[in-house]
Amino acid sequence: MKSKALILVLIFFKSYIAFPQDKKAILINYDKSIYINKDALISNVYHVYASIKSSDPRFLSDQYQFQIIGTGLDELPLEKIKEKADLNTVKKSLSFTDLKKMKACELHELLSLCKNIYLIKKENDEYFFWRLHYTGTTKNAVITNTN
């Protein structure tokens, strides 16, 4: 329960912080476990994949899928749709691999219930974020670069 409490990052923001109306949020660091891919059909949609080793011995990995939706009608590079994040808030973010301590079903429910999931990226001592929509989990899947 204690470890769960550590993992469930429920952050209460004040109104002046970078995430204005959020009461609870999950902030995920943009690290090596994260892969972002542009949607082939819808120009302003990006898919985000976070793969971690499955805690269930029947599976190799759990791939958690999210989407970033551009803020307009046209394709915008990720750089254009990122928003600036407050440093104090960012300190409370976590690596997705930390979440493997949770059971897959628990994590799936947590992500499904959370209305505010953010992907945090550090660039030149500044922090930015994208809003994520959780779209589901696939077992044993791995994004494969064949370029």
Binding site: P20, Q21, D22, I42, N44, I69, T71, G72, L73, K115
Partner: peptide, 17 residues
């Protein structure tokens, strides 16, 4: 009709293609 919601906290941010 394809809906897009930029900011879920901002009702005016939704646009429809």
């Amino acid at each position: 009709t394809l809906p897009f919601i930029g900011n879920p906290n901002d009702p005016t941010s939704a646009v429809y293609k």
